[in-house]
Design a protein around this nucleic acid. Structure first.
Lengths: 334, 334
DNA sequence: GTCCAATAAGACACCGTTGTCATACCGGGG
DNA sequence: CCCCGGTATGACAACGGTGTCTTATTGGAC
């Protein structure tokens, strides 16, 4: 049978309520009593029922992580970061995949909250920018923190990196290497970050006095195939780019793959840059020059904000970093 | 405030218990009453509290997925497969990462079960073979199903693929292409599958009358770096292999990378094969010949077994497939 | 010595469901 | 006409904790 607080209280020789106090680290418990209770808990290997605590109390000791992101690396890192912080807090994490385009998104999220009574929610991009989701959470007055939202939302906390600056930095890096015709592959249209990276690319060109040429910019969907297709289009131009900057690593891998296929040497004939610094960046040849996005740290920080709301810091920015590896090189004089 | 069964019962004009009956699809409810209740549920957008159901009833409508696998692609696929089946069943999935080598593994799992009252557990490799975990689950009499266990365990269900045969098939494929000196990179020692793939490699060689040479076999840990290190060792041998078969795709990517680094052309100078058919296999150049492991299907089938235990089929095998891509080619005459 | 605030601990109702038992109605066999 | 099993529904006590209120005991300020 299940071990309950009642059993613990009997062993410790105190009331049920006192055991509850110890469990919840409340004040007004003598050291002596606390010790006895803790011993009894350890002896019986007691873990309190979350269901009962949830029902009786005002907390559920659970938070939900809601995501719809098709990059396994990204999700994996987010889950790990959130989980790391939850574990410290003794709180369970419910990982909840959703379809951000589903017409029933709000209903699903509402149902999740009603069923589980979660104490808070972490939203991962692109769910961070689904109006239906945000409205539903606000309607219910649930605390939530967003990881890398694309839009600002005055009322709620978020944790993010500066995508514009990061794309600007990478573009500037390529410019500094002498590249002037730099191709760009845009990300998936439903991620706000796609716009921002695109804008950063443009801003860097502008500052360097290089004209923005639409033919050098191709749409993509954050996946390998779209990267390959974009590379094909770019490299068939009359005036080929000497470098291609893709908005994420998967697409950069696609660019790399197409370059190999048509016999181009990377980085001698073509420099390739990615974005995200997923493990993939170091699994391809040559290893990708890319922007490190501190996903794990973002997720951890977001969860921390959920647990320890600091009214002063509502929007927290974490630093990115340009990782220079083998896929980019100075432009050869020709 | 929260919408409760009481509200529903009032609107529908029936007792609380009758609403409960409809929710649980019990018999002995008239069509008329059922309709009224369903309408009230829809009107109020009611979702029952899992905490209350868990506490009062004998089910928690939750299962746990316990894993410790550092391959994001693998975990992602497992989560998706389990979740797909859970969603059909109206059951929540608790994704629980653990450290399979932790001395407190059993305690953690026990605590998870006590706290959440999960109705069942899915174990993913390598937790499938952690004696402490299995003992704890059995001690508590919790139903569980294992995905790709390395050991047979008469008492419990499992779902798996034939790793031995798969490695045998891949090795045979290489032999059929004319390769005789085939390098092999073993997987992580704490995964039983590593042994099995190794054995399959050996069995295929044996059947083809090719001697097993220990110098052609290198240890690895399922990660990129160990694949690269193994490739270096193998390609520095006096008599180099003409093909290398790595026990997973990450290590195969490492082999590929090392080959590129030293200027070898794959597959002309060296054939490379992987295992798992993770998305990575198609993101590298050239795309990897590998064994498709039906991870999503395995996870779905495992969850299905948990929900619909079929006493007849306790150990269910799913089919693998050799995916021939660009990284292998017939041996050149030299 | 008295009074009060801070400390310490218990009694008891209650959280929102399900399990069990009781009750009432219906149609058919004896 | 009575009895019975099957059907349909409700009353009420659990489930295992927490919130609130009450009570008893301190130890210092006056």
């Amino acid at each position: 049978m299940r071990v309950t607080i009642k059993d613990v209280s009997r062993i410790a020789g105190v009331s049920i309520k006192t055991v509850s106090r110890v469990l919840n680290k409340e004040k007004y418990v003598s050291d002596e009593t606390r010790r006895k209770v803790e011993e009894a808990v350890a002896a019986l290997n007691f873990s309190p029922s979350l269901a009962a605590r949830t029902l009786a109390g005002s907390r559920s000791f659970q938070i939900a992580l809601i995501y719809d992101n098709h990059s396994p690396y990204y999700i994996h890192a987010v889950q790990e970061g959130v989980w790391n912080r939850c574990r410290e807090e003794g709180v369970r994490m419910l990982a909840q995949p959703v379809d951000v385009d589903s017409p029933t998104l709000a209903l699903e999220i509402g149902g999740l909250i009603d069923e589980t009574h979660v104490d808070g929610v972490i939203l991962s991009s692109p769910v961070t920018d689904a109006p239906a989701a945000l409205a539903e959470l606000e309607r219910r007055g649930i605390r939530f923190v967003r990881i890398s939202p694309g839009t600002n939302h005055a009322l709620t906390s978020s944790v993010f990196m500066d995508d514009v600056q990061a794309a600007d930095d990478m573009t500037t890096h390529l410019i500094n290497q002498g590249h002037k015709r730099i191709g760009f592959v845009i990300g998936h249209p439903n991620h706000m970050a796609s716009d921002q990276r695109h804008f950063g690319y443009r801003r860097a060109l502008d500052r360097a006095g290089i004209a923005y040429e639409p033919e050098l910019v191709r749409p993509g969907t954050f996946d390998f195939e779209s990267g390959m297709a974009a590379a094909e289009a770019l490299l068939k131009l009359a005036q080929k780019p000497s470098a291609i900057f893709a908005s994420n690593d998967d697409m950069a891998a696609g660019v790399l793959s197409y370059a190999h296929r048509v016999g181009l040497d990377v980085p001698q004939d073509l420099s390739v840059a990615g974005f995200d610094d997923t493990p993939l960046a170091q699994l391809v040849w040559p290893p990708l020059t890319t922007v490190r996005q501190p996903v794990l740290e973002l997720a951890y920080a977001a969860t921390d904000q959920l647990f320890c709301p600091d009214p002063a810091i509502v929007h927290q920015r974490l630093q990115h970093e340009v990782m220079v590896r083998g896929s980019t090189a100075p432009l050869r004089k020709s």
